[in-house]
């Protein structure tokens, strides 16, 4: 049950460090067969074969939810795919943003209440520049006159514009290093955007990507709960009362909200 013996997994500064990856696989593999609360966790990291062609994982019937509600242009959606994958890439732990269906998650979010800032105060006058007050918290471009959908569209098109200017090709066609360089320029506010700071768009992109990786699969991301499995997070469990006092790490098969409804 416990994997305390894997002391090689220290801070991973170097993505190529093999000992960390080995340690992670060993951890997950070692858990197979351990049953708690009736659940058997099968280590996803051990199971995942990231190099396997994706086509083999596709269900034979089409997934009718994988169609766009918000983005009208394929070009914009392709930039979104590439940008989210940069933020949360596929690796030895498991799938990245695209494999988790994060772009479709974001598309659905922007088509709904949140995308139009439905629960936000929206009366003017707007003073978007005031968000840049150093005392002001940044995670959401709070004072922008644009809603989140508009910020995403403008931001994705700006990413592409910068890519074409710097590298002469579309953002999704730029190589990984070039894509990272462009996103860093947004993160550091080295790019001028209209109506919102580039860093605010980047923060929104990053936050929404993580939400798509780790929210309940009912929203269209976290495909097959693989985001949760990478973190060994067991989802919407009804109770931990029987196990919360024990010292050993507890591994459980994750549960989604579909188990509570219907």
């Amino acid at each position: 049950m416990t994997d305390d013996t894997d002391s090689n997994g220290t801070v991973v500064d170097d993505p190529t460090r093999r000992n960390f990856i080995k340690a992670t696989s060993r951890v997950a593999g070692g858990s197979v067969g351990g049953a708690l609360l009736g659940g058997v966790f099968v280590g996803q990291a051990a199971q995942a074969k990231p190099n396997e062609p994706k086509e083999q994982k596709q269900p034979e019937t089409p997934n009718f939810q994988e169609a766009r509600q918000f983005f009208t242009r394929t070009d914009d959606f392709e930039v979104l795919k590439a940008a989210t994958e940069c933020v949360f890439p596929e690796d030895d732990n498991g799938p990245g943003a695209v494999g988790l269906n994060v772009p479709y998650f974001i598309d659905k979010q922007l088509a709904g209440l949140w995308g139009v800032n439905g629960q936000d105060y929206r009366a003017g006058p707007f003073q978007p520049q005031a968000s840049q007050d150093p005392g002001h918290v940044q995670p959401h471009p709070e004072q922008s006159a644009m809603n989140r959908g508009a910020i995403f569209l403008n931001g994705l098109r700006k990413l592409n514009e910068v890519s074409e200017k710097r590298f002469g090709k579309r953002f999704e066609s730029a190589n990984e290093e070039q894509q990272i360089q462009i996103l860093q320029a947004f993160e550091n506010d080295d790019i001028d955007m209209v109506g919102v700071a580039a860093s605010d768009f980047f923060t929104l992109l990053r936050q929404t990507t993580l939400e798509g990786a780790y929210s309940d699969p009912l929203y269209g991301g976290n495909k097959n709960m693989q985001g949760w499995k990478m973190k060994e997070y067991p989802g919407a469990q009804a109770s931990y009362s029987a196990v919360i006092e024990q010292d050993e790490f507890v591994k459980l098969e994750p549960i989604s909200l579909t188990d509570y409804q219907g």
């Binding site: 801070v11 500064d13 933020v87 732990n93 996103l183 780790y214 990478m230 060994e232």
Partner: peptide, 28 residues
């Protein structure tokens, strides 16, 4: 909970490959 908890040691990137590895490793 997993969306809000992606903590990494100071100095670690906050997105990308190194972030993903560390945020998953240190989640628990």
């Amino acid at each position: 909970r997993p969306i809000a908890n992606n903590h990494v040691p100071k100095g670690t990137p906050t997105w990308g490959k190194v972030f993903k590895k560390n945020s998953i490793y240190y989640y628990n």
